[in-house]
């Protein structure tokens, strides 16, 4: 997670314990609670979540700042919330 320090993370959500589509639902709920411009880190598993969640986040207009691969095979997606 060292690379996360490049960004000022306002909130973190862990979606490693859930499967599609709740992965993206939890991400959406976390983004909803932030203000425009704030930054969310989404901790997710390899495979289906990392293939789908970043794309869905982008489709909703949010800005993906970085996708960081961790040594344990999980990923951290760093997202800046777009306006409503």
């Amino acid at each position: 997670m060292a690379e996360q320090s490049e960004y000022k993370i306002d909130e973190t959500v862990d979606i490693t314990g859930v499967v599609c589509p709740v992965t993206f639902v939890k991400t959406k709920v976390a983004l909803e609670e932030l203000d425009e411009g704030q930054i969310l880190a989404v901790h997710m598993n390899d495979g289906e979540p990392v293939q789908n969640v970043p794309r869905s986040v982008k489709d909703e207009g949010h800005k993906i700042l970085k996708l960081i691969g961790n040594e344990d095979g999980t990923w951290d997606l760093i997202v800046r919330k777009a306006g409503a």
Binding site: P21, V22, V25, K26, K28, V29, E32
Partner: peptide
Amino acid sequence: AFTDEQLERYSRHILLKEIGVRG
């Protein structure tokens, strides 16, 4: 706040841009 059960029950609504969490 939604409970985990509600998040799952209403997930197909929440996924819709036109409804989402607020809707």
